[in-house]
Design a protein around this nucleic acid. Structure first.
Length: 553
RNA sequence: GGGCGAUUAGCUCAGUUGGAUAGAGCGUUGGCCUCCGAAGCCAAAGGUCGUGGGUCCGAAUCCCACAUCGCCCUCCA
């Protein structure tokens, strides 16, 4: 509908130019938007006001001429008004709205998809937590946002791959092995003082016990061998647990990429050599520096330490080079907001690799404040006190967990209240939209008991859907594709929950005002078609969020 | 001290990238089930968009300064 109006305006302006009633200046891109106020029409355009400065003329006069030259050949317009400083307000005839539903019917499950991605290969890297402990609530938010961003991009026509980068090569891995080793010694009755720098969580002791049961005291006097083995064992076991936990959230990756591989294949050494050859790095004080300041970073960054070991950053450069070598046109990283300081250096790296800055986009996810009945739940990774993803999903369920993570802009702090999230009432927004879907299903069940088949578009009389509530519902259904598109383009999944909430609200209003199944057969068919379309959109939207659309609840 | 982000109704938050009288949910108050699911609907009350300047026909949105809060300023990951 928007496109049609844009076309009308374009044609009109063109003919004004031909007739010479408008000066041939730069014509800006025309915009049509939804006015908030009902009396301002169904759509409004501000072209006249934008043209005002270049035409050197009052906007209202320009608007008048544009309106006079609009030829509404399809006869969709009820009237056009010029209002305020120079807005052109369009009023659409009530009986043309339902025509828009045809598209929902023909596309079905695919309604909402677009092709702005045009098959571009995109990789979304997210979670990427160290395999040194179970995932906590903050990781869960990143996981759900990353997964949903991937869904959105897919729907927008990108070819998407989900990847988890396993930091299994640094110091923290030795620390993990050591932690298990000390617990292991404790189990055998040795008097050891457990270092403060080690991982304190109870899962470490459990791993030690497992190893003790399987291997006995074999490692008692072989500290080096023990740590090597236990690091490997613990990392594998913890990663396994992470994968299981992610699955309870509905998050599945296409690939897990190990940092160790980068060293094994000499990728880190190779990229350092390449940077050296191309003059992006220099030596100073026994360390190797990357000149990231040349790319806008606030200081240069170390890539090889004084002790000869490459930094995490060096591995990350190698990793990103690897990504681009796999033909990803674009790479999206979902990071915790505490890493925002790393964006400039990563962009520098990407540019040094000969890529455009835009080929790497970073989505920042703010920390989660976990509450129970409004009271903060204390968490400290170091002390091993935290609520894991598993505990959250067990308690509140996948749907409520995901929806709560997705409701807010990812770049703002989130209060996640365990009690609120599992309450099955109006305080909890998930149920509001799911309820709308269940209600639609219920009406359709009733209708089919009375012998109605679910109608397709060609079987209904769209002219019958003309009440305010019906038109409002159709209008919002019609904006779903552009909503998905915008959400994908800006990498802002939170727009979708807001949209569905609106949609559900419009549906409920319609439901409370009008009867779907009535004595009037034609009207019943038309309305059944309307709620069927509504259900399709709710289902499609919830699918993007990874939330189920129940038929009963 | 420097950088980034935030500041919108009592609370939690949106605000379509500069548009008309700033919105939603929760909470509060009052209505709506002999009738397709009341986990719902309708209505009311509630605002100096942190403060002060500036740009613009027009600012919650863009620019500058200040205030408060958070995060980051490792040769840790």
């Amino acid at each position: 509908m928007k496109d049609k109006l844009l076309k009308l305006l374009e044609v009109s302006i063109d003919s004004c130019l031909e007739k010479g009633i408008l000066k041939k200046t730069d014509i800006p891109s025309i915009e049509v938007e939804f006015p908030k106020e009902g009396s301002h029409g169904d759509y409004a355009s501000n072209v006249a006001m934008i043209l005002a400065s270049s035409q050197r003329e009052a906007p209202r006069g320009i608007a008048e001429r544009i309106v006079e030259n609009i030829s509404d050949s399809d006869r969709i317009l009820d009237k056009i008004e010029i209002a305020g400083p120079g807005f052109i307000n369009f009023f659409i005839k009530a009986n043309v709205w339902a025509v828009l539903l045809r598209e929902v019917d023909t596309l079905g499950d695919r309604y909402g998809e677009s092709n702005i991605g045009n098959g571009t290969n995109v990789q979304v890297e997210f979670v990427s937590a160290n395999p040194t402990g179970p995932l906590h609530i903050g990781h869960a938010r990143g996981a759900v946002i990353g997964d949903t961003v991937a869904n959105l991009l897919q729907a927008a026509g990108f070819s998407v791959s989900r990847e988890y980068y396993i930091n299994d090569a640094g110091n923290q891995m030795n620390m993990l092995g050591e932690s298990v080793y000390y617990r292991y010694l404790e189990l055998m009755g040795e008097n050891v003082s457990f270092p403060e720098t080690c991982y304190q969580g109870g899962y470490i002791t459990e791993l030690a016990r497992e190893i003790y049961v399987k291997c006995g005291d074999r490692f008692r006097s072989d500290k080096e061998g023990a740590i090597l083995f236990m690091t490997e064992y613990a990392a594998g076991s913890i990663l396994g647990g992470i994968k299981e936990d992610l699955e309870t959230l509905g998050v599945v990756f296409d690939r897990y990429f190990s940092e160790k591989e980068l060293y094994k294949n000499d990728d880190v050494a190779k990229i350092l050599q390449k940077l050296r050859e191309e003059g992006f790095v220099y030596e100073e004080g026994g360390t190797l520096w990357f000149n990231t300041m040349d790319f806008g970073d606030e200081k240069d960054r170390v890539v090889v330490r004084e002790n000869g070991e490459p930094t995490y950053f060096a591995a990350d450069i190698a990793y990103h080079r690897n990504k681009y070598s796999r033909d990803f046109d674009k790479v999206i990283n979902v990071w915790g907001a505490d890493h925002h300081g790393y964006i400039p250096r990563m962009h520098a790296a990407v540019m040094a690799l000969g890529r455009k800055k835009e080929d790497l986009e970073v989505v920042l996810v703010q920390l989660v404040n976990l509450l129970r009945n409004g009271v903060p739940v204390p968490m400290s990774t170091r002390a091993g006190e935290f609520v894991t993803i598993r505990e959250v999903t067990d308690e509140v369920g996948k749907d409520a967990a995901r929806y709560n993570f997705l409701m807010r802009r990812s770049n703002s702090h989130l209060d996640f209240d365990l009690e609120l999230a599992k309450v099955q009432s109006s305080e909890n927004p998930v149920y509001y939209v799911q309820y709308a879907h269940a209600r639609i299903s219920s009406i359709m069940r009733l209708a089919s008991e009375q012998g109605y088949q679910m109608p397709v578009y060609s079987e209904i009389k769209p002219d019958l859907l003309t009440t305010v509530e019906e038109c409002e519902l159709i209008k919002i259904i019609n904006t779903f594709p552009e909503m998905v598109e915008g959400s994908a383009r800006t990498l802002e999944p939170h727009r979708i929950p807001y949209y569905i909430n609106d949609l559900a609200s419009k549906f409920h209003s319609f439901y409370n005002k009008h009867k779907v199944v009535s004595d009037n057969v034609e009207l019943t068919k038309a309305r059944l078609f309307l709620i069927k379309s509504t259900g399709t959109v709710i289902r499609n939207a919830l699918r993007l969020l990874g939330v189920s659309a129940p038929e009963r609840m």
